[in-house]
Every structure is written in structure tokens, then in C-alpha cells.
Design a protein around this nucleic acid. Structure first.
Lengths: 229, 229
DNA sequence: ACAAAAATATGATTTATATCATGTTTTTTA
DNA sequence: TAAAAAACATGATATAAATCATATTTTTGT
């Protein structure tokens, strides 16, 4: 893993946000800045977990494979987000994969250092707990959506979720560029179904698309669709 | 909510397990023991969160409604499990419902006391973090199962999961008695599909069922089914 | 103890969505 | 810059699983 030139400024990431400035030098001394290019794997499900990753810039997908073909994207990570650490009580293995979508600078600290931080800096433990609790809520929401919403509703929901999480550019399109396949994997459907449903939305003028740039035109109507059944 | 006669013995629940004995008196003074009967709601999604609940005995389901009919059971709680607390950063509302399946004694502490515990007893914060991290892993697993496994595979998986979590009685059946509807809701399918698939399993002698007592006969074969597609 | 409400049991029908198949275009990489 | 690999685009087809319908049995509340 190549070390990044433009290194983390010790202000943005989870660790630095939640620890007093006095700690930043220590964190700086114990973190590596890694530069990943598009498509690179940060870690794989099944790998032994050796550390924590913090996204400084770029975009990352967190996903799980099923069988040989199917994959579900659990969430996307952007600047400020945390990757990699989980309960670990039992098995110190990653249970998800993390792959780069847009070239990313990632801060890395090894588990030993991270756990020593947790031991001494209770604020970080507390924030980590809060962070997991929030992610857990999201996961639970996503679960019931997968179980009960039909594909059209889920796709409408996906578009709104992406716009919510990544915001809009000045030009008005959702500020993340994904392949249709990734959007499908995030929605939990196939490429073909996603493609056709997006065409429908375009026909109905709910969205406007050029290449990977998506503009939500009728937010209210898309939101209404998420209530279908 | 009626107060229970057979009160919590201050040893089993999350709070007591993870705090030194010196704290138990304080916890004892600040917790209420509540007795819930079958079908009773402990809390509802949308309710303002006022406290934490700990299962002392009995069985509880944690679930979310979708529309008027459909519901997904996210997990079951038994003695020692915790209910109710979430990130709360933004909204102090329960995002799930908890309903009693088998009559339950529940320990309750209000949020103010619980948060004061977290402030002073870092071990509890750390354990809570670990607990959420584990639940998050489970949630992520369940998500990909919902997205990618077919119903038959999911039902096989459900039966194995239940046996794993609740163990077997001396008579050999899974040590939890659920309605078919609840099993369906936990699997994320309809009652009818669940029923038919279980009949299939019975025909194929993978399981044996009498009333709500389920015996897994061919664990390996059921496990193999979970790999279908 | 009896009425009402859940839960169980099954057949018939529908439909939403995955799968298959194939061609074109764009992007990546050697 | 050519070749290979992704990504994009669509039509045709199959099918898994939901929905609808209805009857019986069991449980629960009063």
C-alpha cells in the first residue's frame, strides 16, 4: 500500500475529532496515510483484522459477497467515516469488504494502538459506542426495507438516501458517481431491474440522468414511491 | 406496568455483569422490575425513549412494522439481553418495537441513570460498544441474507439460528416456541410460504414438528440448503 | 363456558423480479 | 493504441414467492 503524499491533517477523522488536541501528535505518530486507487481493496471479508481505517478523502464501499456473483453494498464511506473495527470479541476477522470507488486517502492505525486509545481515552470509547448505535439503527432500517419494500420503492429510496448522504453539486446532481451495478448492489437488486426502473423514473421525469450524473427532479414523488405497499 | 414479584437478582443482566459488585446496590436502588405478560408491548417504535430494558427472564421479540400488515422480527431477546438503547445523537426515539413472546421479567432503568453509569463506569461503556459492534455484525449478515438467499435457504438458516441461540431441550427440540407467523416474520417471508416450506422439510425428514415444538433432524442437510444459490 | 380472535392448514392465481441472451459503448490496461 | 474488460442497454422467458380465498382448529378473554 503506497503512502499518500497529501497526508491527513489530523482534524477530520474520527480519532482526531473525538480526542483533545494534546493527543493529536501521538495519533499522528501512530497512523499511516495510505493512498488507494479506484477499485483497490482496503480489506476483504475473512481477512484477519489488523487495524482501523479512517477515510480522509475519496469514496469507499463496504460490501459483502454472496456466492460468486451476488454482492450487497451495506454502505458507502466518505471523508470522516470509519472502517474496519467491529466487536472482535470472538473473531478478529473482517466480516465485510471495503473497496475504493473514488481514489482515497485513508488513515490507518493498528489495532493495538487503537485499543490502547480506547483504554485511556474514554471519550473515544463513548463516541465509538454512539457511532455503532447509529449504524445499527441504519442497519435495522435497511433490513426491513430489504424485507418489505418492492424494488421500485427501494430504488427510489436509494436515490434519496444517496442525495441525503452525499448532497448535491452546484450543477444539482447527486454528489457521488456510481456505476449502475453499484447502485443495484446497494439497493439489493440486479443490474437489469435497476436499469429498467431508472428508465421508468426518467420517463416519468422524476430524475434526469447523464452518464453517472443523476439529478433528482421530483423529490416528493420519489419519496411517495417509497411508501408503495 | 406491574412490578414483578420475583425480582432480578442483580447478577444476570448486562449492567450487573459488567460492573463491580460495589455498584450493584446502586443499580438495585435505581432499577424497577417489571412483569410483562405474553403479547404485551414493552415499547413501540416511535415512542420517546425513556429508559433501558434488560431481560431477566422470558422471551422478547424486537421488530419493525412496515405498512399495516408486514413486520420483520430483527432478533429475539432472552435472559441477559438488553433492549432499548440506541445512538440517540439526534432523536431519542425507539426505532424498533419490543413485544413479549413468553412472560417476561424485565429490569428497567431510566436513561438519566443509565447515562450517568456510562459517564462513571467506563467498563460498561466499553462493553456496550462491544455489544453494539456484535449486533451490528449480525445485522449486516442478516441484511445480505435477506438480499440474496432464497426463501428456502433463509428458512433453513432461521431454524439453525434459533437452535443456536436458544439451544435444545432434553427432549431435543429447539428451546423456544414461536408461532409460524413469528418464524415467518423473523425469516422475512409470508406465513403461507413458511408453512409450505416447513412441510417440505418435514416430508424430507430434515425436521420433526409437533405443535410449536421443532426438532432439527438433519442439521448438516439444513446447513447445506443455506448455500442454495 | 362461550364468543371472539388468533393460529393453522391448503389450494388456486398472479406478478414482480430474476435470469438468460446478445449487442454496443466506454473504460482500463498492457 | 490495440486488446481486453467493464459497463451500458434491451428484449424475451422463467419462476419463486406473494397474494387471495376459505376452512378448521386452537387459544384467549370475559
Amino acid at each position: 500500500m503506497p503512502v499518500a503524499k497529501n497526508t491527513c491533517d489530523l482534524s477530520r477523522c474520527f480519532l482526531c475529532r473525538h480526542s483533545p488536541p494534546a493527543w493529536h501528535a501521538l495519533i499522528g505518530a501512530n497512523r499511516k496515510n495510505l493512498l488507494f486507487k479506484k477499485g483497490a481493496a482496503i480489506f476483504h471479508e475473512g481477512d484477519v483484522a489488523n487495524g482501523m481505517y479512517f477515510v480522509y478523502s475519496g469514496t469507499v464501499k463496504v460490501h459483502r459477497k454472496w456466492g460468486s456473483q451476488k454482492e450487497l453494498i451495506l454502505r458507502f464511506g466518505k471523508a470522516g467515516d470509519m472502517l474496519g473495527y467491529r466487536g472482535l470479541g470472538d473473531e478478529k476477522k473482517y466480516t465485510v469488504s471495503a473497496t475504493v470507488i473514488e481514489p482515497a486517502v485513508i488513515c490507518y492505525v493498528d489495532l493495538a494502538f487503537f485499543e490502547s486509545l480506547l483504554q485511556t481515552n474514554h471519550q473515544i470509547t463513548y463516541q465509538l459506542m454512539q457511532c455503532y448505535a447509529n449504524e445499527l439503527q441504519n442497519a435495522e432500517k435497511k433490513m426491513s426495507k430489504l424485507a418489505h419494500m418492492n424494488v421500485k420503492a427501494r430504488i427510489a429510496d436509494t436515490l434519496l438516501t444517496l442525495q441525503n448522504q452525499f448532497g448535491k453539486t452546484k450543477e444539482g446532481h447527486i454528489n457521488i458517481q456510481l456505476s449502475r451495478l453499484d447502485i443495484a448492489a446497494f439497493t439489493g437488486t440486479t443490474y437489469e431491474t435497476l436499469f429498467r426502473t431508472m428508465q421508468e423514473f426518467i420517463q416519468e421525469k422524476l430524475i434526469k440522468v447523464s452518464g453517472k450524473k443523476i439529478v433528482v427532479l421530483k423529490e416528493k414523488k420519489l419519496a411517495a414511491l417509497t411508501w408503495t405497499q
